[in-house]
Amino acid sequence: MGSLVQIAVNGLAQGSIYALMALAIVVIYNTTETFNFAQGEFVLLAAYVSASLMGIMPWYLAMLVAVAVIALFGATVFQRVAYWPLRNSTFEFVIVSTLGVSLFLRNMAKIVWGAIARPYPEYFGGVWRVAGVSIVKQHVLILAMTGGLILLFYLFMMKTTVGAMMRATAQNKQAATLMGVKVSRMVALTYFFAALLGSVAGILVAPIFFLTIDMGMATMTKGFAATIVGGFGSIPGAIVGGLLLGLVEAFATAFISPVYKDAYTFVTLLAILVFLPRGIFGERIAEKV
């Protein structure tokens, strides 16, 4: 029983990271109708930048600065270069431009920080023992941070005027413009959120894994899988899909075999594609014309 709780916490923590990535993918899709294939690079940059900053300031400050810098970078330079000039083209152009930026950023990171995997400082290390169950503190932090972030995001989208403006932009850009919404600002805000979610995922996941140049790409692929499982374009779907993938991975690793960790994602994906082709929260797909 105790070990079951332990596995569940483990899986939910891992799933939270996938959920954050999936959420970022969906938020960008809803506003801009394209994908950002450099999403994984926000994870990578936040992890490396914060690790470097920890040499000169306390860990919490280093993280805060890293997340703030990456989120601002996403909202300004990144979005202006990779998305804005192509906003009137079809969505494949943005895919290719973000792929180009992703290659650029990843290889610049390789030059700056080196290609060798290295450990991330364990800022919140240790284990809690509650009634015979040992729970890794970092996992609890991941759950709390993800939950808090998603709640804040929800409140912002649903309860504030700017949130309503963002939803309006996602629904119909032209009508939103006519209502006085400045679309360029909404796009900047969207990328701000995407970069924020990505960089928070980066600093949360870094202590569990080593820092590697490919960590962004690997996390992003899982994020895509989560959006498909949860239902394409759906925000609750992204969260549920991410958590589900994390749980499946954790339980299958514990009870079947740890060798095929990535294959469990695939079995889940296959089952979802066969039985629920539109995902768990999938709506009827109606393309915007």
Binding site: V81, P85, S97, L103, F104, N107, K110, I111
Partner: peptide, 20 residues
């Protein structure tokens, strides 16, 4: 040298931006 893959990425971006 070390910069070639980064420049490759930048090149792709520039072509998409300026030569659609």
């Amino acid at each position: 040298k070390d910069y070639y893959m980064a420049m490759y990425g930048l090149g792709i971006l520039l072509i998409v931006l300026f030569l659609p």
